[in-house]
Design a protein around this nucleic acid. Structure first.
Lengths: 261, 261
DNA sequence: TATGATACAATCAAAAACATTCAAATGTCA
DNA sequence: TGACATTTGAATGTTTTTGATTGTATCATA
């Protein structure tokens, strides 16, 4: 077989495409190199986004790195998301006007708020908010305008910013794809980043970021704002553990949502 | 078989997708691991929301975590509305930018357009447009901002007008509650009337009104525009009969949508 | 409703896979 | 050839996975 790294990795990739998964030991035998070499190959390929690394081997990437497929992502880790949603909803008081951006985590917040049905105003660009609030008599729902993005079930862009510039809220509830001390809050879609930034700029009260463990420490393509703009981070148990080992601004409060069942 | 967790879980998932349910003992035998390992796999997958755990095994998730579940509006005269929608959709050409306001008749137009899937841009304040266009790759959907009205599944008000002021369309497809020579187009909600008027003002091409027979000759509370602003009226057979006995502007074309079934 | 069979949760120890560091082998360019 | 970078493999300790064990919860059928 190929004795150079590039050839090996190409073979690994083709095998992953046909089999779905590969194991380190199997590849080491087949290519007659040490398992360590295979691990290094897989790590490199994972860093380039070609495969997904798992314990013992690697799998095919389910979705493109750029923009996650909505229905798949939306139902990942429902328990954690529901817990986060509940915790955030508890921070909301009657009379509040909230900015809530799009994403499956913030949808969980909307669902929790819909259940409580306090008299609040929600300003959002999440298209799923409509049905989530369909039985909440006391929630006033204001929707951002803009270009609809099928993949994320949301609207964004300059039209959304235009609407947002007209509204001041006293809390912002922001879901992100990346939360990092150095890079701040990041998302894979430029327009979403712009819309989210506009929401934060129009918020006079506290900015609450929701991010499950798999978002903490991650850096995505486009920056919305730095962590200094954030007042509260709501995450799950694992996320809390990661944050504890990071250098974060002192004024940023961490809230752990317990997955109590 | 795959000896790593990822491969096992992938196999389990594919099996669940085809069979509907799986049992722990069956999987343990098939994959040649202990039942305990299978249980751990299933628990992990359940935590991620991929499967539903049951006693002794797992089943496919029957309900998606996110389910619009729109109460399909108790459609009055579905056949007539579908016919009107089809007739209007036939007037739309690739490249068009359309204003479409809210209402069950115009929703039928959107549904017909979604089926054709021409490359057009739809600007609407109808919240149901999201799911109606969910499988139309070529339709660009721009949503108006504004306050959401549960009863009509739409947004309206000054924020909607603000967005509309930024966009020029070459056709407007307008549903109304009242169509009358003397009172013009009328609707029972002030904000909807304002939004619809703004749409018509921003249209440089033809204004197409859709109205079933039960709207013809009716006068509702708030006036949007007079009939002189309308270029085409699309109605059903009965509606055509009524219009024929009316005094309408000469430049207003009448189109009868045949209920061919 | 009681009861035996099965599935489960919790804990622990062994095995496998891993990260990390370092040195040897290989290839490249002057 | 010699200096340098790249690739590879060995050795170390750490983490993850796995299966055996125990006792508990749940199910099906009488």
């Amino acid at each position: 077989m190929s004795t150079i790294p590039a050839g090996r990795q190409q073979y690994i990739l083709s095998l992953i495409r046909s089999e779905g998964t590969v194991t380190v030991s199997q590849l080491a035998q087949e290519l007659e190199v040490s398992e360590l070499t295979i691990r290094r190959d897989l790590d490199q390929m994972a860093a380039r986004g070609l495969v997904e690394r798992t314990h013992g081997g690697a799998t095919e990437r389910r979705t493109l790195a750029v923009e996650p497929d909505y229905p798949q992502k939306a139902q990942e880790y429902p328990a954690e998301k529901a817990a986060i949603g509940k915790a955030v909803a508890a921070m909301v008081e009657a009379g509040d006007t909230l900015y809530i951006n799009s994403g499956s985590s913030t949808l969980a917040v909307i669902q929790a708020l819909a259940k409580l049905d306090k008299s609040i105003t929600i300003v959002t660009n999440n298209a799923d908010a409509f049905w989530a609030c369909k039985e909440s008599e006391n929630i006033r729902l204001i929707f951002c305008g803009g270009v609809y993005r099928q993949r994320s079930h949301s609207v964004s862009g300059s039209l959304a910013s235009l609407v947002i510039s007209q509204i001041n809220a006293n809390k912002a509830i922001i879901g992100v794809d990346g939360f990092s001390p150095s890079a701040g809050l990041t998302t894979p879609i430029l327009e979403e980043a712009e819309t989210t930034r506009a929401m934060i700029e129009q918020t006079v009260g506290s900015v609450i970021v929701v991010a499950a463990a798999n978002k903490i420490g991650v850096v995505s393509n486009f920056r919305t704002v730095g962590l200094e703009e954030v007042d509260v981070l709501v995450t799950d148990q694992d996320g809390g553990d990661i944050v504890n080992q990071m250098e974060i601004p002192k004024n940023l409060a961490i809230v752990i949502a317990a997955t109590t069942l």
